[in-house]
Design a protein around this nucleic acid. Sequence first.
DNA 1: ATAAACTCCTATTAATTCGATAGGATTTAT
DNA 2: ATAAATCCTATCGAATTAATAGGAGTTTAT
Lengths: 148, 148
Amino acid sequence: MLSKKTKYAINALVYLAKGKRGEAIQISRIAESEHISRKFLEAILLALKNAGVLSSKKGMAGGYYLLMEPSEINIADVMRLFEGPIALLPCVSHKYYEKCEECKDETTCGIRNVFAEIRNETVNQLKKATIQNILDRENILEVAMKSK
Amino acid sequence: MLSKKTKYAINALVYLAKGKRGEAIQISRIAESEHISRKFLEAILLALKNAGVLSSKKGMAGGYYLLMEPSEINIADVMRLFEGPIALLPCVSHKYYEKCEECKDETTCGIRNVFAEIRNETVNQLKKATIQNILDRENILEVAMKSK
DNA sequence: ATAAACTCCTATTAATTCGATAGGATTTAT
DNA sequence: ATAAATCCTATCGAATTAATAGGAGTTTAT
């Protein structure tokens, strides 16, 4: 399961993507709308900023705004930022590789082989899931529900 | 990432599947071979027994043995047993469903829609990954390495 | 200039989960 | 009987997660 940090990050990104591009939005507005602790969200937005996803404007009328296009922000990257590796085993992670303590031979390990495949498919899937993709689905679903 | 519990469970299952069917193998033998704390492994095997994957024989010359076929034991079920839901959000879990605290409308939530798809594909993938599948891969890999 | 309204940053805390350990009860082959 | 195994419950320390606190720094309206 996703940690609350990751979930809140996605909520905030979707919220920002729904607003006007370039317009700075204050932490407290997002926190209120999405029911997130303001101080907790503060740390999350800061991390997204340091990762280059968001940018911010300080001072009065300041706030956060998207730096990347919603179509370029994907769940895989957001998850890596807040949860660490997507791979289920350290020995199949690209960015956080670590040898399994007592693996006799990595090249012939069936477990590793299976989990390597799982990792690859999962990453592909999570990369396809962008913020833009989420917005598009929301629109489709809303239209579909109205015509019911 | 998988917890050590889940990882150890898979290691133990592969170990048991490599041995003779029906033969009871002691916890300490598995623990030694796979470098797992004996007491910790005890709890893991007990859980697998209660889940109907393993069975055991008490007393002298006792131990654990597979109750299910290696081709019927899949990673999805093992993960559910030790990690809980496979879904990344509670609102898209089948077996552990929970409403998201502040979701205005579940039927039009784009986030939910995306993560529902991710869940389905992930479950399919993890169900295909059986213990038998791991053994098969190991054999293939070993043959391939020898001919190098 | 100054005060208000923001972000930025570090530290702390409370609660939960994870990995491991301890010890005795129960069962069974010899 | 006894030795060797599983069964079961309880506990503990460490790590992680979620949240809070407080103030330093920055910008802007007035």
